[in-house]
Design a protein around this nucleic acid. Sequence first.
DNA 1: ATATTCATGTAACAAGTTACATGATTAG
DNA 2: CTAATCATGTAACTTGTTACATGAATAT
Lengths: 193, 193
Amino acid sequence: MALRHAILATLLNEGAASGYDLAKSFDISIAKFWVATPQQLYRELDRLESEGCVEARVVTQEKRPNKRLFTLTEVGLATLAQYTTTTPKQTAIRDDLLVQLQAIDAGDGSTVVANVEERLRGSQEKLAGYQKLRDRILNGRNEPEFFGDAPHVGPYLTLLRGISFEEENIRWCEMTISVLRKRAAVTDSAPGE
Amino acid sequence: MALRHAILATLLNEGAASGYDLAKSFDISIAKFWVATPQQLYRELDRLESEGCVEARVVTQEKRPNKRLFTLTEVGLATLAQYTTTTPKQTAIRDDLLVQLQAIDAGDGSTVVANVEERLRGSQEKLAGYQKLRDRILNGRNEPEFFGDAPHVGPYLTLLRGISFEEENIRWCEMTISVLRKRAAVTDSAPGE
DNA sequence: ATATTCATGTAACAAGTTACATGATTAG
DNA sequence: CTAATCATGTAACTTGTTACATGAATAT
């Protein structure tokens, strides 16, 4: 049931958002703490509205389709506060690429290497986006200064986790590529095992 | 559909396993590339068997309940090989603890700090387990030696990803705890938004 | 005595994915 | 003229979670 709280937390920090806005920030290629598809969000927003956790205000637009702007209610805020007192689940690792690596002896090594290279590019892009966001949040201050006087630090701390995750991803991808390339070269010239 | 391939990859590397064996290695507190509950595994194993990807051999035991030992078939091996040629999905970040941090301004800071401390302990335990496994795999060799002469490196590479993930988790938890503690101290003595 | 390990399963439910549909607007 | 962006939604499906049930054998 964390999706609902992830939505409420986003509304808390952003003030107001449409389903479409949320879909962008929960997108797999930019999400920092939770991912969800637009369909999940629209479904959950309907539920949250019917339970009184959020309020929708229809904004009529002329050059764009109308949208429903959602904001937190008192009930939603209380729900979120409640949630922070619960024990979080351990994070489940579910990574297709790691499954492919686990199966590399039975499969096609060169495609797997290509997939690791693709992951590397993805992580570099994600990291670049995170760094930009970080600079925007710091706004000229260094980190100790920021921690000293910023009113809220939650989103910044989750961003830092995202940054180090992608940095590690990059390091690991580079190492993995070089190891697999060397092995491919060896088995090509002297096929043993 | 990666669970089935994660199971097949495990059977490839372990040779044979029961549902119970698999349940242990897919457990959230030790899994390195995929997690699943026992119920998911038993369900998927039935499917894999009916599709001819695995074969079950009932082992009658005297002092223990009987078990079904699963092994890969040719079909299963081909399925796995096929899988390595597909494009892996990007990993979805879904972390309750990060959601709580995102919501920390609306909630109970001290519980969240306690939760981060709990995560820290969990990561330290997981890392210790991974390090032991690493030593066992290396078996006295250093890493370049291992990469030079080991017949398969897939499981070792996924293990390295797990190790660096937990190391980063530990670093981040420690930093987060110290930042949140300092803020709690400040807001306690001089309460100003 | 009590808890944990071994070993499997059913049933109900919640969450996440994929495919499809609409339709105007603006940027390249 | 084509693709992307804005903005929402329905329906069908697949995965993942939770609760419950059984029952003997060890370890503390």
